[in-house]
């Protein structure tokens, strides 16, 4: 069953198109990493889920409810860590959690939550004196209250040091293992690929790729660029190589062949050139990483607000 379902969603702010015809499905019990550069439309998507903003067109459903009509029902079952939020400087960490516990109508123990997010020692200090990372931990703690079925985390690692980011990933996994669905956005691939069951890459308000982390990795590592320098290029080398199913492109620059192919035909390419009478003097391979794929999908985008 889909916990989150967006169908043909468009969101325009004045003349700016923030989302165009976005389709997105997040299945129950999975960790979905919503990846994209700043300004791609990640926060806009999350704002639509929370009814902080309303779509220009299309349908948004969370647990099958429309956020515009049943926002409270959705938020009762959801823990939210928003992006660019602020807390109440004059209240303590414990007072924030007390308020969140009362708001959700549950009876969680603030102490245990503070312990879990690692700020137990700052419980009774005013939040105005917290660092960015501590505020982030406190807000995560508030999101965890009441064992929500869905966690929506917008750029959760903001302001966290590496240890904090690791704690965050641990908590995300624990919550998934408890049965929660987790939808979180990030502009940094490294935060996503370690924990996500599924990844969607957003660019310019549209989903440009969606797969499991392994799927994306396979798709990319399959693509190899092989550069072979030979003493002389055999006459029909190009035609010969293109007969192999794994070879997609051959370009010849002087005595260098640039072959785009799948990883497992690399040796076949080299063997063929030798058989055709060329002597291989040098060769390099360039495997594209997931990081490069991400860059390829997302670079060149303009930063929009």
């Amino acid at each position: 069953m889909a916990t989150i379902e967006l169908t043909n969603v468009t969101k325009r702010y004045g003349d700016t198109m923030a989302l165009s015809d976005l389709d997105l499905t997040v299945r129950k019990g999975t960790i979905y990493g919503f990846l994209g550069p700043n300004g791609a439309g990640k926060s806009t998507t999350i704002n639509l889920l929370l009814d902080f903003a309303r779509p220009t067109a299309g349908s948004v459903r969370v647990f099958g409810h429309d956020p515009q009509d049943e926002s409270r029902t959705i938020r009762k079952r959801t823990g939210i860590l928003p992006e660019g939020f602020d807390l109440y400087d004059r209240l303590t960490g414990r007072q924030h959690l007390d308020f969140a516990i009362e708001s959700k109508g549950v009876d969680d123990d603030p102490e245990a939550i503070l312990e879990r997010v690692g700020i137990a020692e700052a419980a009774d200090r005013k939040v105005g004196g917290y660092s960015k990372g501590m505020a982030q931990r406190l807000a995560l703690g508030a999101a965890l209250i009441g064992e929500p079925e869905l966690l929506i985390l917008d750029e959760p690692s903001t302001g966290l040091d590496p240890a904090g980011a690791r704690d965050m990933r641990t908590i995300i996994r624990e919550e998934r293992d408890r049965g929660a669905t987790i939808f979180f956005s990030s502009h940094i691939l490294g935060q996503v690929d370690a924990v996500c069951d599924r990844v969607g890459i957003l660019r310019d308000g549209a989903l440009v790729a969606e797969d499991t982390v392994e799927g994306l990795r396979e798709a990319t590592s399959a693509k190899t660029t092989l550069r072979v320098t030979v003493d002389q290029v055999p006459e029909n080398a190009s035609e010969q190589l293109l007969t192999y199913a794994g070879v997609s492109e051959v370009a010849i620059e002087d005595t260098t062949l640039v072959v785009s192919c799948e990883s497992d035909v690399k040796t076949t390419v080299l063997d063929t050139l030798e058989t055709e009478g060329a002597t291989v003097q040098d060769f390099t391979t360039e495997e594209s990483s997931l990081e490069e794929l991400f860059m390829a999908y997302t670079e060149g985008t303009e930063v929009r607000t």
């Binding site: 409270r72 939210i80 939020f85 602020d86 807390l87 708001s103 508030a142």
Partner: peptide
């Protein structure tokens, strides 16, 4: 931005 925290709760 504290409104985002406030409305992140079921109000």
């Amino acid at each position: 931005g504290s409104l985002k925290f406030l409305l992140g709760l079921p109000h």
